[in-house]
Write a protein that binds this DNA or RNA. Structure first.
Lengths: 345, 345
DNA sequence: ATGAAAGCGCTAACAA
DNA sequence: TTGTTAGCGCTTTCAT
């Protein structure tokens, strides 16, 4: 090995020369379905590996006019649900020959900026599971024929592929889980910042309460993680302890929110769950099944969701002028120990 | 907007024509420090935005011979510690103008295969926080002058940049946290699959016990998550309940392992923690501070670690013939409620 | 400060 | 089946 710090990367030209063939032959040897004899392919492959040659994907993409890069735009990657979602999506992309560029974006501005950057890379598609991207981005994607799929974001726009959970069913289910075991004075806890899926499930919960003439309060907090749950818990505790008319059933729009509330209520206020207050969460993250929480919750299947999202994108890559679809997955109740009934559905 | 499905992507040529300048001028307008008059740059930028032009990074990379892509190779992205680590690393890369390709790899084979792929993209560097890559990969990186940094992997190899925690200090600290509050019959729980950092901290814990003449057992389990902790808990419970000579102090090599053990011991065996058994975990993931666990643990700072890793890589990108460095971060004890003392250090 | 021309490493017509 | 040739869209000397 030479010590030359300026050593040129080895190119198909070098391989061609060593193997005694043309550069096209080299190219063919590295293309899945290309017409080439086994003999020359073998020769090329040997020459290549002896030189440490690898195809330059930048050059290939330039020529073929498409990369096998895709973008994943995600927020709150360190939350349990999101990290699973992204892990699975990344795994699926990788398995199918695509390479995900990971863009972590917490705000809508960031989503916009980072999506723009993805355009520079000629990505084959963009998967978004953070804030809804501005419509300018969506328009641009369609102009550039870049598939985009939104996970749990904005059904408002029906000209873009989406994967969602059934928010109406979700809200109703939360209502049923709570009332079927006797809760009669309900409340919902949700982040102030609106988000299609999270806000939606709370909205339909409240709507169901109203339809059924069950009194319902709303609590808001700044975020959807554990700490936000803790912060909200104090007001909730007051409501629980408010005499005969105290709150007895709470729907938290995410599990992590529920954990924060649960902890604070139990340890700081000595409130019994489910004795005094029943709680239902949402997501069914791993921690919900941990022994100390045993949170009753509503499960959305991250695996199924991410797999479907990737599939949807690949479908559209193959067939660009498909009509936009909105896939809706249903959710399932999980009865554990923060509600009083433990029989199902 | 035309309906032409075959519409060509707009190139610098189109912009040049509209702006009435040369393609070089367009190129200059989009390069940070290029000699160009404000007037023409302005003209170009306007023409560009009116056409929806964006620089093709594939072509640019081909010409400049470097992309601003980097690789992140990570395992177990859905575990709390790893997802934080990756989130921060991605954020840092993004902020500094690099785009991370996310490779999720659970096995050493996968790490090898996926790193190989990264070579195809001419990545500016590779960050690895999964299994240690085979030495062939490391050699290849050095041959291709691709910076690589390992996080919490293999100090064995001193010809590659690494960020690690002080495993010796970690082991000793675990010992001190347990014994300073009276534990005298200790044990360590760790995954069977060896891993530099995880196995290392257990190793030094045991070594310290032996030096101090404190009896110590070893428990092994298959994995380092909650479920693996639960599985291991039964044997541990027996040991705790073994009369006068029962186990009274346990070091779990990861927090998630500790949660599994803790839950099972408390809820299935009615064992009091820290009454009958004191437990110390490792990582200080968010859940360790949750009210129902309040796990005493040893904190490794994910933020500091990831930031340092990114910085280290960028440093080496700037100065490729830097000598390899091994940065070691120290860890800090966090006393909560699974040990009996709550004062520190 | 600007433009002309060459070429980064590859693939894809087309010919042979 | 193979080689020749012409770009893909950009940056970068080198003149001007």
């Amino acid at each position: 090995m030479t010590d030359d710090p300026l050593k040129r990367r080895v190119t198909s030209f070098d391989v061609a020369r060593l193997a005694g063939v043309s550069r096209s032959a080299v190219s063919r040897a590295f293309s899945k379905d290309a017409v080439i004899s086994d003999a020359t392919r073998q020769k090329v492959l040997e020459a290549a590996s002896s030189l440490g040659y690898r195809v330059n994907f930048m050059a290939r993409s330039l020529q073929t006019r498409h990369s096998n890069l895709v973008g994943i735009v995600a927020s709150a990657l360190d939350s349990p649900f999101r990290s699973r979602q992204v892990k699975i999506a990344a795994r699926e992309f990788l398995q199918r020959g695509f390479r995900p560029i990971l863009m972590t974006a917490e705000t809508e501005d960031e989503v916009e900026k980072l999506s723009e950057i993805l355009f520079n890379y000629n990505v084959a598609g963009i998967l978004i599971t953070s804030a809804t991207p501005p419509s300018t981005i969506i328009a641009e994607c369609s102009r550039l024929s870049i598939p985009i799929v939104l996970v749990n974001r904005g059904l408002e726009m029906d000209d873009v592929d989406t994967i969602q959970i059934d928010i109406e069913q979700s809200g109703r289910l939360a209502f049923e889980m709570l009332t079927s075991s006797g809760a009669r004075r309900l409340a919902a806890l949700q982040p102030i910042a609106p988000s299609y899926s999270v806000t939606g499930r709370a909205k339909y919960f409240i709507q169901t309460c109203e339809q059924e003439n069950i009194p319902v309060q709303q609590f808001f907090t700044d975020g959807q993680d554990f700490a936000a749950g803790r912060r909200a818990a104090h007001t909730i505790a007051e409501s629980v302890l408010a005499g005969d008319a105290g709150l007895d059933g709470l729907f938290c729009a995410t599990d992590t929110l529920a954990f924060g509330v649960l902890d604070t209520l139990r340890h700081d206020y000595g409130i019994a769950v489910p004795g005094q207050l029943q709680i239902v969460g949402f997501d069914d993250v791993e921690q919900a099944s941990w022994g100390s929480y045993q949170l009753s919750t509503i499960r959305q299947d991250a695996e199924k969701q991410s797999v479907a999202a990737v599939e949807m994108m690949l479908n559209r890559i193959k067939n660009p002028n498909l009509k936009a679809r909105n896939i809706i997955h249903s959710v399932t109740p999980v009865y554990r120990k923060t509600t009083r009934t433990s029989h199902g559905v």
